[in-house]
């Protein structure tokens, strides 16, 4: 999927037109549309609606409109602002780092070497395991007293250095970032690898004959050839970055001192644990707008880069 396809006027060669086609089309569309309506469009509408009300489960107060009160109180709430900032920091670090690493890995596993399929599968394996499983493993590896990471640190620094990783507000978010990148970089790698394999290899052969070095080939063949793929991967990684939930839910519950709290985690705490539906829905709307804004901003930056 690329921006290209979306903006170009797509005119398919229809195999069916006329009245019969319309009937068939709506029969084909119906199951998905009904489900999308009930479980996506309606809840989305409800979220916007409730965000302007005082809706609270089990509350004796009648439902009434409170205007933008939920929003104003969110933006004066230190806990929410910290969660918002954590999401932004996370995205700003993870998106470029993870995409660059994924590109490096994709180029590495695109080499024609015996046994390369093993490495492709290995780098992708954490994605297969999923966030909860990956987090559980790293929780033990990052244990302050027994963990392997501190074992390695102590060995490398003769016992001088020793971190509390997930338990220290200064390193917790960084630790989460490391775990997330390790756990999901394989996904972007596979998509970029697919893009690499679409670049005709005679382009490289011609460049080699002209005496172009590795870097020149990367700049003038690989990057332009991967343009659409990279735009897609960056957009997708951004959306995933804002959705950060599993790792912090399993590992830190947002702590210590809110240093790993995220908007989604806050949404669940407010909406599910405290049953403040109106406020939780306001978080959902802010979350949605932030994702859209960040994605659009990035599109802009990428487009300007090109011209």
């Amino acid at each position: 999927m690329t921006t290209h396809d979306l903006t170009r006027a797509v005119r398919p060669r229809p195999i069916r037109t006329g009245g019969g086609a319309a009937l068939a089309a709506w029969l084909f569309n119906a199951p998905a549309l009904v489900l999308l309506l009930i479980f996506l469009a309606v809840p989305f509408g409800l979220a916007i609606f409730f965000s302007f009300t005082n809706f609270r489960l089990g509350s004796p107060l009648p439902l009434r409109f409170v205007g933008v009160e939920n929003y104003t109180s969110l933006f004066s709430d230190a806990e929410f602002l910290q969660a918002f900032a954590n999401n932004v920091i996370f995205a700003v670090v993870v998106v470029p780092v993870q995409c660059a690493l994924a590109l490096g890995l994709a180029i590495l596993v695109n080499q024609k070497i015996r046994g390369i399929a093993f490495f492709r599968a290995l780098f992708f394996m954490p994605v297969v395991l999923g966030g909860a499983v990956v987090s559980t493993i790293w929780f033990i590896l990052m244990d302050p007293s027994y963990g392997l990471l501190n074992g390695l640190l102590r060995a490398a620094t003769f016992g001088q250095l020793h971190l509390r990783w997930l338990q220290d507000p200064n390193t917790a978010l960084a630790s989460i970032i490391v775990i997330c990148i390790w756990g999901s970089v394989g996904f972007q790698m596979v998509i970029l690898l697919a893009g690499l394999q679409d670049i005709p290899s005679d382009l490289y052969e011609a460049a080699q004959l002209d005496g172009a070095g590795t870097w020149a080939q990367f700049r003038s063949i690989t990057l332009p050839g991967l343009r659409n793929t990279i735009v897609f991967v960056v957009t997708m990684t951004t959306i995933f970055a804002f959705r950060l939930f599993d790792q912090v839910f399993v590992l830190t519950h947002g702590g210590p001192l809110g240093s790993t709290n995220t908007m989604l985690l806050e949404l669940v705490k407010v909406g599910y644990d405290q049953q403040l539906i109106g406020r939780a829905c306001a978080i959902a709307v802010v979350f949605f707008l932030a994702v859209v804004a960040f994605t659009l901003l990035q599109r802009r930056v990428i487009k300007e880069d090109e011209s």
Binding site: L6, L36, I38, F39, L40, A41, V42, P43, F44, L46, A47, F50, I239, F242, R243, F245, L264, L267, V268, G271, Y272, I277, A280, C281, A284, V285, F287, F288, V291, V292, T295
Partner: peptide, 19 residues
Amino acid sequence: IVALAVVPFQAIAIPTLLE
């Protein structure tokens, strides 16, 4: 469809839960 693809499920989890 393209617009709905942008709405993350997590954002609508609470109203869906109410349904």
